[in-house]
Design a protein around this nucleic acid. Sequence first.
RNA 1: GGCCCCAUCGUCUAGAGGCCUAGGACAUCGGAUUUUCAGUCCGAGAACAGGGGUUCGACUCCCCUUGGGGUCACCA
Length: 526
Amino acid sequence: MPDTNPSIRTRFAPSPTGYMHIGGMRTALFCWLWARHNGGTFILRIDDTDQERNVASALEPIFRAFRWLGLDWDEGPDKGGPCAPYYQSQRTHLYRDAVEKLLASGAAYRDYETPEEIAAQRQAADADKRTYLSSRRSLQLSDAERAQYAAEGRSSVVRLLVPRDRTVAIDDVVRGHVEWDCGLMPDPVLMRSNGGFLYNFATVVDDAQMAITHVIRAEEHLTNTAVQVLVYEALGHQPPVFAHIPFITAPGSNKKLSKRDLEKLRKNPALQKLFDRADEIFPQLGLGDSTTLSPVMVEYYEKLGYLPAGLLNALVRLGWSLDDRTEIFSLADIVREFTLDRIIKSPAGFDPEKLVSYQTHWMGELSIDARVDGCWPYLVQAKLVAESPACPPDLRPWMGELVRAIGDRLKVFSDILDAREFFLADDALPYDEKAFQKRIRDAAEAPELLAALRDALRTVTPFDAPTLDGFVHGFVESRGVKIGQLIHPLRVALTGKSVGIGLFETLALLGMDRCVARLNRALARI
RNA sequence: GGCCCCAUCGUCUAGAGGCCUAGGACAUCGGAUUUUCAGUCCGAGAACAGGGGUUCGACUCCCCUUGGGGUCACCA
């Protein structure tokens, strides 16, 4: 058992965006894992500094995603905790105090230059191919001028006074030693002219006040870290340990997987199937389509009936591995084995195929009963069965047989909808016309064979798969035809499709009466 | 463009100087099983970006080049 450290505190700070991004979820997972691995504390803090929207409803999908995956938090908005409140919008007094402290110590200054002036300076620097640096003219102001400006209510921002004669460095757990030259940094704004605070500042104040020991976040924040470390130092705090993890990219590309590029992602060959499946399934469930629920959102996987274990397994293997052979991890395994030093440095492409393979594994671990329970809500939602919170007891044995017959074809719970023909009324069965043509109309002996079988079927008892297997084989033998000549047309006649579960299971599941009814209907439409 | 990061099979990765004729998984392609599909079993192909060093010896260390990415806001 590796060393653990209960004093470790990590946090994840989502913005209320109205959905949970798959990449963000992976970051959150790593934060959660490090806390849990150590028996430490995992904190959820809401980054709602620019709260235009309805925070509560925009937060709901985020909480939902955490709960679905089984990632709990020890301190957070709904739970409270020793560092409350956990909404940044309610913590402005802390930021204000920190700004005052920095102003008083001279580590920060009030800057009266207008945005236009700054922009002009920036442009001039660009034109001269010079690194832009803050002019710091406001520092030259006399006390009298300062007082006058304040009295006039002239607008100003508070900037950190960057110590230009040195460097800042971190020893990132993942990246190693990274260093920046402060002489190249403009003075960052800490507080806006309207009194609002900036991310790079608020985050540091929060992380320090919440005693976060490990900041685990996506690599895109690496550059921000320079400013943040300077703020830690100016405030007199010890910076936490940083771990900048590689981000998740779109399959076959090395661009960040983002919701903005949805249209590009739609054309990505590896993602195509996921979008198509969404467009096929979600409308049946009354959930919109791939535009409302796309593969970059955690909700996509939940709503399609993926298993938390499947997604979790896939997510943790993106940028992390234990050794040269272990692929399958339960959440408990991951918690036990997860360490920061096994995180990879390079970006990881999200591979839907690999996700499916993990998913298939974990689905296989589930009992038939559990699979029935997982599938049931989809049948209800698609209105294929009568509304009921769970599969009724009298239907359960039959459902169990169906799910057993579907076997590995059931990769996610919504795949049960591919077996919709078992739930449709006999006179409402749609036919794959191409298959019907080829297997029934164009096969000379098919109609007669089907009719004969229909009549013979009435004598079969018990009407179960093994018996039917023997019976059908005897039937074709006695007629001197090959099994394939019967089986293909029979499948189309009974299910309307050319592919599906085992044929004898299909017969048994349908039962004699429905088989006869469907055969009659098929024969009548030749 | 400045600064920063990254670079092993198509993909996810193992590899902390000799264990590497580079291992595993997913995907792909064969073959077997089979009533379709899925699966299962067996097998195959498939990678250290390039160039310099260091070293008896480099996938592993250093430098350069190339390529990719991130970031440069009174966004987060």
